[in-house]
Amino acid sequence: MTSAPLAPPVPAREAAAPALGRRPPARRRRERPTGLRISRIVSRVLIAAVLVMQVYPFLWLLQTSLRDREDFAAANPFSIPTQLTLDNFSRAFEQGHLLRSILNSLIITGGACLLLVVCGMAGAYAIAVLGFRFSGLVRGLFLLGIVVPVQVALVPLFIDYSRIGMLDTHLSVMIPLAGFALPMALYLFLSFYSYIPRELYEAATLDGAGPYRIFARITLPMSWNTVVTVVMVNAIFIWNDFVFANTFILSEELKTIPLGLQDYVGAMGNTDWTATFAAVSITVTPLLLVFLVLNRAMIYGLESGASKG
């Protein structure tokens, strides 16, 4: 099931198309094309409507960020701007700390993804390849993490961090982000490791390789595709995290992009919408571009995550 979505499924949909017609084909042969056409038109209109719903808000955001401030205040929000300006972007950079928050987001996302990949890989290797007596129990323990909502960790972690002086650090946000993403990552690695043939390990063992060498020479080099999938799926959620950063980060200097955006409204009041939308565009665009280029890995991860879960 997981490999199906990767191969673009184009083959003759025409053959199954009569199934979509309203009537049994045998009896009313002549009406079939009409019913078919109507249901096709309806489904295409619906598909287009959903497309507009999902994409238009983003296009609107972009065009607003390019629009003159006065023009935006006066005009119908649906109208196309008469002239474009980059003014909003310079104001967005002046009044906020965009670059600083981008840097903070990069540090936290990079650190959390590294933690996640290292721990996911090591855990899956211990469970699936090395094996030990209570591996089933450990597996179940991690499964728990998929269902548990993140809110339950907020208060205790806040208290623990303030006790050991870790509040308001990059690491304080990385740990829960990686921790809550770990179960899913672990399962992706586990399912991939179950495909590596045992003979490979047996041969390596006969050649005298121990568990560390086998990990470094066989398992790790074969894992890169799964690493990309795990990073793609989680990087977006970690990059966009609001609740942990909002709770554990207190100082201005450490604010991530989602927090920085929230401040924009406060700092400028609700009047400077075009500059705010320029800031939103700046923070959203790089992520969207990465997504548009690398979406296969992400979509694959989402699909296989769901069918394994």
Binding site: L115, V118, C119, G120, A122, G123, Y125, A126, I127, L130, F132, V138, L141, F142, L144, G145, V148, V152, A153, P156, L157, D160, I175, P176, A178, G179, F180, L182, P183, L186, G210, P211, Y212, F215
Partner: peptide, 22 residues
């Protein structure tokens, strides 16, 4: 020992970041 070496990091992360807070 090798099982422990590989199992310790994920258990620490998950224990400290998820299980202990629960």
């Amino acid at each position: 020992l090798s099982v422990l070496v590989f199992l310790a990091p994920p258990l620490l992360l998950f224990g400290g970041g998820v299980l202990l807070p629960i």
